[in-house]
């Protein structure tokens, strides 16, 4: 049996209210204070003032992740660099604003700089000029799981040799005014910010970068709560087929019937390890699961153990990412390569 593709993580970037470093990603999710994100600090230089908030969060997280990786990222040819980003709510407030402007003033009054962001893929697309990405630059959209699905797609693409390095993760913006007023409880706790992992093929030569760990993601669609147990067992079996089971489970679940069924099915997979329940808003932001992945990879205090991060949407999307920090003794032995100089350029895989 061959399980889901695994990838190596060499860089981490995390931006969220109260969180400006990856090793704080497991911390609380406070209500964002006004001015919590300072563009000038996170993104020095020109050209950012007209970008939507989500775009700024994403660029800031990617910048931090690229710096974390260092020369291993910048030394990769542009056509071998790519991005894969999940989002569910980014752009919602902007589209509402467009609607109001068109109704009240007419389409001619729309801001030309903001109009492209009617397409949710534009948020991740802005990574391309910023980081000289000339490989693929894709967006996944779905409630709750789009971030983990982006990690899954990145691992598949790396395993298939379609890129040498992928910026993968998630971005979410605050819910729109209409979303907040119609179903206020559906968007609390808020899922705001961005998380980016710099991902490489699992077995590529280590190019001087720090290896934070490894990720593999599996996903499925569950047609109803009665099917959760069977589907979850199948996902688990394939994820851990060639290694020890995770020592911990982070369950990012809402209070839907699917969420409850997943929560009920997890203890049999915990194998005596702990389960951390991370309440999710049914409004469907997809950042929190990726945030847990980042936090597990960056945790310096012993929490960085082999962990399964589970996310599910009320509609039946189910994704599980198995996170294996570099220092975890249970990780599968990997080929060790002699680090090369920082100027080494990575090319196509053989």
């Amino acid at each position: 049996m061959s399980g889901p593709a695994r990838m190596r993580v060499t860089g981490l970037g995390m931006i969220a209210p109260g969180v400006d470093r990856p090793d704080r990603a497991l911390g609380p999710r406070p209500v964002p204070a006004p001015g919590w994100f300072r563009v000038a600090d996170a993104l020095p230089g020109r050209g950012y003032r007209r970008l939507p908030a989500g775009c700024l969060y994403l660029l800031a997280a990617a910048r931090a992740a690229a710096i974390d990786t260092g020369a291993s990222f910048t030394g990769t040819p542009a056509d071998r660099r790519a991005a894969m980003v999940g989002t569910n709510n980014a752009g919602a407030a902007l589209i509402e604003e467009f609607d109001r402007t068109i109704i009240d003033l007419g389409a001619a009054e729309l801001s030309p700089a903001h109009v492209p962001y009617m397409a949710m893929s534009m948020f991740a697309a802005r990574l391309a000029p910023e980081h000289r990405l000339r490989g693929f630059d894709l967006t996944t959209n779905s409630p709750a799981v789009a971030g983990l699905d982006a990690l899954q797609s990145a691992a598949r693409a790396l395993a298939a040799g379609r890129a040498s390095v992928v910026l993968a993760g998630a971005v979410e913006e605050p819910p729109s005014p209409a979303q907040r007023s119609s179903t206020p409880t559906a968007f609390a706790p808020a899922d705001i910010g961005a998380a980016i992992l710099v991902c490489e093929p699992e077995d590529a030569p280590v190019d001087g970068a720090t290896v934070h760990g490894y990720c593999a993601t599996h996903s499925a669609f569950v047609p109803g709560p009665d099917h959760v147990r069977t589907v979850l067992a199948a996902l688990w079996r394939e994820l851990v087929h060639d290694g020890p089971p995770p020592r911990h489970i982070d369950a990012v679940l809402d209070d839907s019937a699917i969420g409850a069924a997943v929560a009920a099915g997890l203890p049999e997979h915990a194998r005596g390890g702990g389960i951390t329940a991370v309440p999710a808003a049914s409004g469907g932001g997809c950042l929190t699961p990726v945030r847990r992945v980042v936090g597990r990879l960056a945790a310096p205090d012993g929490r960085g153990e082999r962990t399964a991060v589970v996310a599910a949407s009320a509609h039946g999307h189910l994704s599980v990412t198995l996170v294996t920090p570099a220092g975890d003794p249970g990780r599968r032995p990997l080929p060790v390569h002699t680090p090369t100089t920082s100027t080494t350029t990575k090319g196509h895989r053989p």
Binding site: R50, E109, S111, P112, A113, P116
Partner: peptide, 9 residues
């Protein structure tokens, strides 16, 4: 050109 359009508006 996009920035130019924005400035014109």
């Amino acid at each position: 050109s996009l920035t130019t359009m924005e400035l014109v508006v």
